[in-house]
């Protein structure tokens, strides 16, 4: 393991995301149960668990795509309340990559990347385009800048989506199953970009079942089931010594698939 990937866990780094007693219901359905979670700056957290366990809901609370009902949620020192100014401030600092890419199909790749910097960060167009080209090089597709998303492969689209988030210079990146919609041969090109991002010290919360990726970069892996955090451990212990039967069952299922 490269030195730059030394665990940031439990070091004295400032706190990036903190959830205290977080609960959320969809009507009667209790989707998040008493979630407590601390993520420090520079830490890489991988979240896994069976379908419907609340992984997406939890990370979507962090940038207020979902609203929690009780408990506190602090992001980058700002508490998420109904105050629109806080929500705007947090969304400026938090980037998100979706399973379905969600690129804007009516804009070119370059325009996808410059839209938010121009309108949210009020960056001059030329500067925004230079930054966009820099990030396109980072994800290794500068030659696609003038194309429309529909002309790219899935892997390329997801890399554009990552670059689009990076253009806002976020302090925290959220990934919700970024490789689940991709054909196997494209998964690696996206994971490579994410590994590189991790190497540079980006704070990352990543819902994924790519256990190879988790082993390589995660400081901690969280296992969720039925709206609860069941286990949380560094990769070595997580795979070698699962404490609960639920995690043992889950690991046996997903590791068999690989």
């Amino acid at each position: 393991m490269p030195a730059s990937l030394a665990p940031a866990h439990n070091t004295g780094n400032p706190i990036a995301v903190e959830m205290r007693g977080l609960n959320k219901w969809y009507g009667e359905f209790h989707v998040l149960r008493d979630i407590n979670l601390t993520v420090r700056k520079g830490e890489r957290l991988v979240i896994c668990g069976p379908s419907g366990s609340g992984k997406s809901t939890m990370i979507r609370c962090i940038n207020r795509l979902e609203e929690h009902q009780t408990g506190t949620l602090m992001v980058d020192g700002i508490e998420l309340t109904n105050d629109v100014r806080n929500i705007d401030a947090i969304r400026r600092e938090v980037g998100m990559v979706f399973q379905q890419f969600n690129l804007f199909p009516h804009l070119t790749v370059l325009e996808n990347l410059t839209l938010a910097p121009i309108w949210v960060r009020k960056v001059p167009k030329k500067e925004a385009e230079e930054a966009a080209m820099y990030y396109l090089e980072r994800v290794k597709i500068p030659e696609q800048a003038a194309k429309y998303p529909g002309q790219l492969s899935g892997g390329q689209q997801q890399r554009v989506a990552i670059a689009r988030s990076l253009c806002m210079k976020p302090k925290i990146m959220l990934f919700d199953e970024p490789t689940s919609a991709l054909d196997p041969e494209m998964i690696k090109e996206v994971l490579d970009v994410m590994v590189e991002l991790a190497r540079e010290g980006m704070t990352m919360l990543c819902v994924t079942h790519e256990m190879g990726f988790a082993r390589e970069v995660a400081d901690a892996i969280i296992f969720m089931d039925r709206g609860e955090i069941v286990e949380s451990a560094p990769p070595s212990t997580f795979f070698a010594n699962p404490r609960t039967d639920r995690l043992k069952l889950f690991l046996s299922q997903i590791l068999r698939g690989h």
Binding site: R91, M96, N102
Partner: peptide, 23 residues
Amino acid sequence: VSHGQTEAAAALGLKRGQALRLV
């Protein structure tokens, strides 16, 4: 227009009006 478009715009920090007008 899929809901994902609204979410992506919101996640990038665009205000509701901007998301409507630009996306």
